[in-house]
Write a protein that binds this DNA or RNA. Sequence first.
DNA 1: ATAGTCCGTTTGTATGACAAATGATTCGGG
DNA 2: CCCGAATCATTTGTCATACAAACGGACTAT
Lengths: 242, 242
Amino acid sequence: MKKPIAVRSLYGHVMHELGQRIVSGKVKPGEILPREETLAESLQVSRTALREALKVLSAKGLIESRTGVGARVLEERYWNQLDADVLAWRCASMPTDDFVDKLVEMREIIEPAAAAAAARRRTAPQLAAIEEAYNAMDAAQTLDEWSHADLLFHDAVLHATGNELMQSLFSVIETALGTFFTLSARNAGNFKYSLPYHQKVLEAIRRKQPEVARKTMQSMIVDSHTNLQRSRSSRTRKKASA
Amino acid sequence: MKKPIAVRSLYGHVMHELGQRIVSGKVKPGEILPREETLAESLQVSRTALREALKVLSAKGLIESRTGVGARVLEERYWNQLDADVLAWRCASMPTDDFVDKLVEMREIIEPAAAAAAARRRTAPQLAAIEEAYNAMDAAQTLDEWSHADLLFHDAVLHATGNELMQSLFSVIETALGTFFTLSARNAGNFKYSLPYHQKVLEAIRRKQPEVARKTMQSMIVDSHTNLQRSRSSRTRKKASA
DNA sequence: ATAGTCCGTTTGTATGACAAATGATTCGGG
DNA sequence: CCCGAATCATTTGTCATACAAACGGACTAT
């Protein structure tokens, strides 16, 4: 789930700006950022605000500051790739096909297992939350309403596993679904095509049938991936004919 | 893999102290921390250092600072549970059996899938890295050497998936294995008992046999979980007889 | 050639000041 | 008496400045 507040403070803007520069590759791993005073000046903020941004970027594993040397951009293997901000920055410009595939692979690993665990252990209120999300999906009139309810559904399933480590993976699912909605926005005709899948998952979790839940969730993801590839190839064709 | 530097600066100490207080439950979600000036004084640091610690804790989703109100501890669902620090704080005092089970569940979901993906896509250098780790495990004389090599092995497998999102889950495996080594330190007699499993995983990845790799990894985790439960029940018995 | 020392550079920490936002309190009108 | 609006105290947000500490390269003496 999203953090309560999403407003960006001054330091937030700076962090966003620098984070995006790093993730997008405008500054590459190994490079040293300009010294704090210079950076602060070029970004029009005080050194204090800049330093808070650098501290957070450092916590996300993007940079490492050392006395007397400066802030070095770390290699990608040190990046906190599951961090919601890092994921968002990678999707800021149109995400690579390659990256989309990786997101889907993560979903294929996480969500079927989560659905199975939820079917085994869900409590009544957890089931109710899933059902509520499903009903919202059913009632959705616009793509926006649908995508919001869809996120709620998948979050509720993760929550129903009763394993909070699982739920922290929501950032990955959120990014994957967000990308999917963006890419498939043009063929918005039948955005509710996956509703039956969701219903089957809900039913399997209600009836405590782990393997049914797992397989159905698996099918849903594979299916949505297929759809994505279709819209991807049409995009390619469009590009080639242009 | 660990970050290059592990030394703790002043702000690091403060962050560690406050983070542990929150994760351990000494201050509970919903509570407001003392005002910055007071906190800084009681921790013997300047407000500057304190604020950097608070910013990072805020980035980890543990707290939320609001002007005129103070820093509120957020509910656990907002915590960045996969963060290496948060995981470490949860294990700081002897981890709950409940938490260990959750770690194992994550391993059961992640690692078999990772082993399968690695068997499908590993490059020659990636395989070499896994093999090197295996050889180090084989040659290990002490529990320390073994655990270090073991971490390298599992990290190399994650790396061989070619999916960097996968590799960021290493923090979970690291914490799980670390806990395992701690809990099973007393019966350190045959700490190398899982070597054959590792060999089979290595071979399956070498021969590009995804399903063999998946199943073997799965068995290894189940087996180590069984071992853990054994040492856990002996601990319980000891406690009961005391 | 090499080890040790010096020195400039850059981050780390401390301090003091003010701006901005929040929530409670007070005041005024109905 | 009730309710809304202005006011005020409190707390974080941002800025500016100063100095301490660590790092790396240059320089020196052996």
